[in-house]
Each structure stands twice: as C-alpha cells, then as structure tokens.
Amino acid sequence: MAQIFHPSTNVLANVSLVAVVVLPLGLLVGGSAISRSPWNTHVGLAKDQPAPFSHQHHAVELGIDCRYCHNSVEKSPYSNVPSTATCYTCHSQIWTNSPLLEPVRNSVATGQPLRWNQLHTVPDFVYFNHAVHVNRGLNCNVCHGPIQKEMMTYKGKPFFMAWCLNCHRNPEEYVGKREDVFSVYKKYQMDQPVVEDEAKLSDEEKKKLADTHLTPEQAALMDSGDYKRSNDEVEKGKELLSKYKVKKQQLSDCSVCHR
C-alpha cells in the first residue's frame, strides 16, 4: 500500500505545530500594536484647519487664559470651540491684514461659523462632562496632552475606554486642587526650575514657591509624561475625593458614562 503522505509533509506538520502558537500570538500582538498606533488613534497628528491657530503662541507667549476662548469649560458638559466673535475681540485690531485670518474675517462678516476639523471625539453613547472634570481639579493636559506646546493642535491622548477607566478606578492618583487647574500655565510661562525635594523646605519657603514653581507632577503634566504619585500625594488625593464627595466605588459603573 502506498503512503498517504509524502515524507515532505513532515515539514508541513512541524511548521503548522509552530504556527498554531505563533500565528495567533502574532495576530494579537500585531493587532494591538496597530490599534494603539497613531494610524488608528490619530494621536500626535495635526489636521489642517481653516486658520492655523497656535495654542503655544496664544496660551504661553501671550499668556491668555484657556477660559478666555473656552469660556464654557467650567460650567458646561461641552467645552466650546470659540466663535469667531472671540477671535475678533483682538483680531479686529491686530493682524487685521493677515491672509491667514481671511477665513475669520469672512466668518465675522457673514455670520457663518468656521468649520474646524474636530480632533477629539468620543462615541455618541459616551457622555463626557468637561465641567465635572475641571471642577475636580483635572488639568486640561491630563486628557489633551501638552496642549500649551502645540503650534498646530493635535490629539494628545488615545481616548481608549481603558484609559478612562484607569482614572475612574484610581481617582486619587489624578484628582487635584481646583485652583491649580489653570494657574499651572502661568507657572509654566514663568519657566522656573522645578522643586524636587519639597519636603525639605520650610513652610514659608513652600508657600513662596507654590505660586511660581511647578511641582514635579505638574512639570510631568506639562510634558505629557507619566507621573506616579507618592504615598503622601495619594493620601492628599483621597482627602480631595472626600472633599469633592466623589464616590469611588461607583465611579467605574457603566452608567457613569453610558446613559
């Protein structure tokens, strides 16, 4: 009786043995790499906009507060993109001949808003509330990355649900003081050295530095770097949680964001 399998099929059998392990693994690793890459998340990719607005110039070089333009961020679920009337508060007087501002002038003249290309979106079944987060002391950069450095605005963080949950499960690692949210940009503007060993300073020295110098955590935030809070800082975060009446055990319930 003739052999059913040619001897060369041994190789096929061996290869398939390896492939059973390697192929699913490769698919998994490759798939997750693709889904985390900017190709999928659009992180770090600036889009063309009707007017080339620079956050770096307006927020740091000129020192305009975020809320001058995004004036609903503290009181509304939606943080507004400013109307061109806001641009015109200054640009009715300065850079009035700039061709880059032609679309802004047209918009003011006709009342037709600019079509900015949206960078940050969540699915329509996610109900994100800006005011709640800002009023719990979360800085803009926590979600938007180093926005104060951006010449062209881009998406700073991938907006995965796991990334939301990371904070919602451990809010004491991220929650901050309400008054620090916008003042960090003034400190960033002053460009003072970061105080590393704050614990060694006297209370008076601490007080003086607090107004002008970024803490290591804030400095990391300005750089979009990750920061691991020390135990003391986590304890302070827990105090803030009770002050804000945040119920941690309910914070990762589905219905918090999906309604």
């Binding site: 000129l62 020192g63 305009i64 507060d65 809320r67 001058y68 200054c90 007087q93 300065i94 850079w95």
Partner: peptide, 28 residues
C-alpha cells in the same frame, strides 16, 4: 478680570496688557 480683561487692560488696569503691547495700542 484676569481671564477676560487683563490681556488688554493689564492686571493692574493700566491699559498695558500683553495684547496692547503686541500692537493693539498702536491703533486704539
């Protein structure tokens, strides 16, 4: 005031804010 007015009028209200220095004051 510091958010909405100081860019032009300055934090002291002396009309010497950053936007004024950047060219606003040349005209008005």
């Amino acid at each position: 005031f510091n958010i909405f007015c100081s860019p032009c009028h300055g934090e002291l209200g002396d009309g010497n804010g950053m936007i004024a220095k950047r060219g606003f004051s040349v005209k008005v």
